[in-house]
Amino acid sequence: MPEPMIEIEVVYAAVERQLLLTIAVPSGTTVRGAVKSSGIGEQFPELDLDSCPLGIFGKAVADPEGRQVLAGDRIEIYRPLLADPKEVRRLRAAKAALARARTSDS
């Protein structure tokens, strides 16, 4: 007897384009397995589907090799950060402090 199929979505947003695929996978498929079987790797060959961070509905999945998908899940493939958010905030705060110091000196 064949395994029951469930429908899920796989999404990826590159800088220049986005793609949302609706696919059917066998019940019991892992998050990583669903992404690999989705065919999204052919659309974005720069993706390393074996190690890229994944999430479901905006929440990171800590163990994509172990977590099974559920019907209706939207698996998101995350791009690496270009800059550390903490460092960006620190630089912005330093720039604002410098601007305040300049206006108070005037």
Score class of each variant (00 low, 15 high):
P2N: 11
P2I: 13
E3L: 15
E3D: 14
E3R: 15
E3G: 12
P4R: 14
P4F: 03
M5F: 07
I6H: 10
I6R: 10
E7N: 10
V10A: 07
V10H: 10
Y12S: 00
Y12V: 01
A13S: 13
A14P: 00
A14S: 15
V15G: 00
V15T: 11
E16C: 04
R17C: 01
Q18V: 10
L19F: 01
L19K: 15
L19P: 05
L20W: 10
L21T: 05
I23M: 05
I23R: 12
A24V: 10
P26G: 07
S27Y: 12
G28K: 10
G28W: 08
T29L: 02
T30S: 14
T30Q: 06
T30E: 05
V31G: 03
G33A: 08
A34S: 15
K36T: 08
K36V: 08
S37L: 09
S37C: 08
S38A: 02
G39C: 06
I40P: 07
G41Y: 04
E42R: 14
E42T: 11
Q43A: 12
Q43I: 04
Q43L: 09
F44R: 05
F44P: 04
P45E: 02
P45R: 05
P45L: 04
L47S: 07
L47P: 06
D48W: 03
L49T: 10
D50I: 00
D50P: 02
D50G: 04
S51E: 08
C52T: 13
C52A: 10
C52L: 11
L54A: 05
G55I: 01
I56P: 04
F57D: 02
F57P: 03
G58Y: 00
G58F: 00
K59P: 01
A60E: 12
V61D: 02
A62N: 11
A62G: 02
D63P: 00
E65N: 14
R67C: 05
R67A: 06
Q68C: 13
Q68F: 04
Q68P: 01
V69F: 05
V69K: 07
V69M: 07
A71Y: 00
G72Q: 06
D73L: 03
D73K: 04
D73C: 00
R74N: 04
R74K: 13
I75C: 00
I75Q: 05
I75M: 05
E76R: 02
I77Y: 01
Y78R: 04
P80G: 03
L81G: 01
L82C: 08
A83S: 13
D84N: 15
P85T: 02
K86L: 05
E87S: 12
E87A: 14
R89P: 09
R90W: 04
L91N: 14
A93Y: 14
A97M: 12
L98T: 12
A99K: 15
R100L: 09
R100E: 14
R100S: 13
R102Q: 14
T103I: 14
T103S: 15
S104F: 09
S104V: 12
